[in-house]
Write a protein that binds this DNA or RNA. Structure first.
Length: 569
RNA sequence: GGCCCCAUCGUCUAGCCAGGUCCAGGACACCAGGUUUUCAUCCUGGUAACGCGGGUUCAAAUCCCGCUGGGGUCACCA
């Protein structure tokens, strides 16, 4: 066998099952596993748990790799991925492959060993038979437990029947004594033997179950520390029993608290589906509004709570409904314009605390990946479950955006738009976004919000809709009418050669002084004329981004609009 | 339901392990002011929590027990 278990370097792993997108909870697990390994100067391994043949897919796997890379959670060993000029993953120690479906021989060798040592045994009951017994037990209100009937068949017969190809599963003979988990986060947890039955380690289809695969792989890959969600706590005694049966060392465990929605419900991919169904019912939509989904399928989906729409269809539907789906997967947050740094920061802080003060006495909450990698400890983890607060995350993202240099902001914003908002990327190139940066940065909490800030510039000059209230207040009301000042300023614009934000600001200031009015008396009419409303970035930037021609056109359009309104009255 | 984990402002949390310096600190949100040509940013101030009941102790947010509440888990899923 291998001696990789003797490796004393710290090794952590993240082992997702490729059955969907990377969930935000999974991302936190990965992040903290990564941080723990970095802090210890060890290695972080990525392994793909694809033993469920019916649910695993390669596209899911690729998506997960991509999401991890985007977050900056770089794995040292595992499937390889080229990202941003770097190669992630690889197998320098020769402990791969990192796909469990490719490791069947390894699992089978260990299972065979257990059977021959009498520590595990084939069992031949059919799933239906067991299901029936389980139902009986539930009806009789007694707890169900496998009755070890498989053990009644003599060992030699069992092996002979198994080798002859008779359908069977393999079960581990659980020890008859309590098992204690020494958890780095929760402390000691002891569970009695009555809580466990002889669980299955190899399925009828010949694939190992999660329990067997995880124990064998962790041991063979030299994993020293297992950080995972608390839902696995009760599995740990099973894993310890398996390690003991196989003669493996038991790694250190740390079971992290789970993340929930603000209403206390479990954060799940279904949340998106649920919201969509609710909206469809509220809006009384009966026929499928999507080409890709037939009316029949749509009706069936609507009726069946357990049925879920494909991700792309859901996105299309949300657009039709005019609703925003809750972000659940890493990909959702990326599309919504979150920065990986802010997401990591928030995620790390949800359950972990650096317990450090800033110089001004406030708690340290904002930190980057380098900080995490050099300060993370399991002792800083809280034990209790926490709720995912999107508002606070939004605030973190907003802070991260403001902290960006204008150059970085323009770059990231343009990259984001190229992928998620093509019209925006076409209207503004990176250089234009750089001009916009100072104005947009403080006005958007996500990159996607940026569109709202510059929305006025995306409309055709003739398509501006003038807000009646704003027009009245800025242009019609008052002694010195805004409209007159606006028309007067038009001439100033016509004479301008330099149409930079600074030049515009200066021109507005001079003009206001010459007219003996405050800045606001000139600025607001201009703002309304240029954007249709009373709210926009600083005037210089607003006008500069439109350009002189467009500004003149809009002032003209505004005049007309005001006359029309006046005639109506 | 059995077993297991958990419990400080609305939310995330510091303080708890080594009881007094805590009529409980920070952040987000919220409210009120201020700066600003609009909005936003920014600045100042404010509201707001130790789940309940018993112990132990001179002294409990901190230690012990019970209750209540939340969560996990009881698959040939992971």
């Amino acid at each position: 066998m291998t001696d990789s278990t003797k490796n004393t370097d710290t090794i952590t792993r993240f082992a997702p099952s490729p059955t969907g997108h990377l969930h935000i909870g999974g991302a936190r697990t990965a992040l903290l596993c990564w941080a723990f390994a970095r802090k210890a100067g060890g290695k972080f391994v990525l392994r793909i748990e694809d033993t469920d043949q019916t649910r695993s897919s390669e596209s899911s796997m690729l998506g997960i790799l991509e999401d991890l890379a985007w977050l900056g959670i770089e794995w040292d060993e595992g499937p390889t991925l080229e990202y941003d000029g770097k190669t992630l993953g690889g197998d320098p120690r020769g402990v791969g492959p990192f796909f469990q479906a490719q490791r069947l021989d390894l699992y089978n060798a260990h299972i065979r060993q257990l059977i021959e040592e009498g520590k595990a045994y084939p069992a031949f009951e059919s799933p239906e038979e067991l299901e029936a017994r389980r139902k009986e037990a539930i009806a009789a209100k007694t707890g169900y437990k496998y009755n070890r009937a498989g053990l009644e068949v003599p060992l030699a017969d069992r092996i002979a029947r198994m080798d002859a190809g008779e359908p069977h599963v393999v079960r581990l003979k659980m020890p008859d004594e309590p098992i204690t988990v020494y958890d780095e986060i929760l402390g000691e947890v002891t569970v009695g033997p009555e809580e466990f039955d002889d669980f299955i380690i190899r399925k009828r289809d010949g694939f190992p179950t999660y329990h067997l695969a995880v124990v064998v792989d962790d041991a063979l890959m030299g994993v020293t520390h297992v950080l995972r969600g608390q839902e696995h706590l009760i599995n740990t005694p099973r894993h310890i029993a398996l390690q003991q049966a196989l003669g493996f060392d038991t790694p250190s465990y740390g079971h992290m608290p789970l993340i929930f929605n603000p209403d206390g419900s479990k954060m799940s991919k279904r949340d998106k589906d649920k919201l969509a169904k609710k909206a469809v019912k509220e809006q009384k939509i009966e026929a499928s509004p999507m080409d890709s989904v037939s009316d029949e399928d749509f009706a069936a989906w609507l009726k069946d709570k357990t049925r879920q729409l494909a991700s792309d269809d859901l996105i299309a539907l949300a657009k039709v409904l005019g609703i925003t789906l809750p972000e659940i997967d890493v990909e959702d947050f990326r599309a919504a314009g979150y920065l990986p740094g802010a997401l990591n920061n928030y995620l790390a802080l949800l359950g972990w605390n650096p317990k450090t003060k800033n110089e001004d006495g406030t708690d340290l909450e904002h930190f980057d990946m380098d900080y995490l990698a050099s300060h993370f400890t399991m002792g800083g983890m809280s034990k209790g479950q926490s709720k995912f607060d999107r508002v606070k995350l939004l605030s973190f993202n907003s802070d991260a955006i403001v902290a960006l240099t204008d150059e970085d902001f323009a770059k990231l914003w343009h990259q984001w738009a190229a992928q998620y908002d093509k019209p925006l990327a076409q209207r503004f190139d990176e250089a234009a976004m750089l001009t916009l940066a100072p104005a947009v940065k403080t006005r958007c909490k996500t990159l996607a919000d940026g569109r709202g800030v510059v929305g006025f510039a995306l409309m055709a000059d003739g398509a501006i809709v003038y807000d009646g209230k704003a027009v009245h207040k800025a242009l019609i009301k008052g002694d010195k009418k805004g409209l007159e000042l606006l028309i007067g300023f038009k001439a100033v614009v016509e004479g301008m050669d330099d149409f930079s934000p600074e030049a515009i600001e200066a021109a507005v200031k001079d003009y206001a002084e010459s007219q003996g009015v405050g800045m606001g008396k000139v600025a607001q009419p201009l703002r309304v004329a240029a954007t249709g409303g009373a709210v926009s970035p600083p005037l210089g930037q607003t006008l500069a981004i439109l350009g002189k021609k467009s500004v003149l056109a809009r002032i003209g359009g505004c005049e007309e609009s005001v006359y029309l309104m006046a005639n109506k009255e």
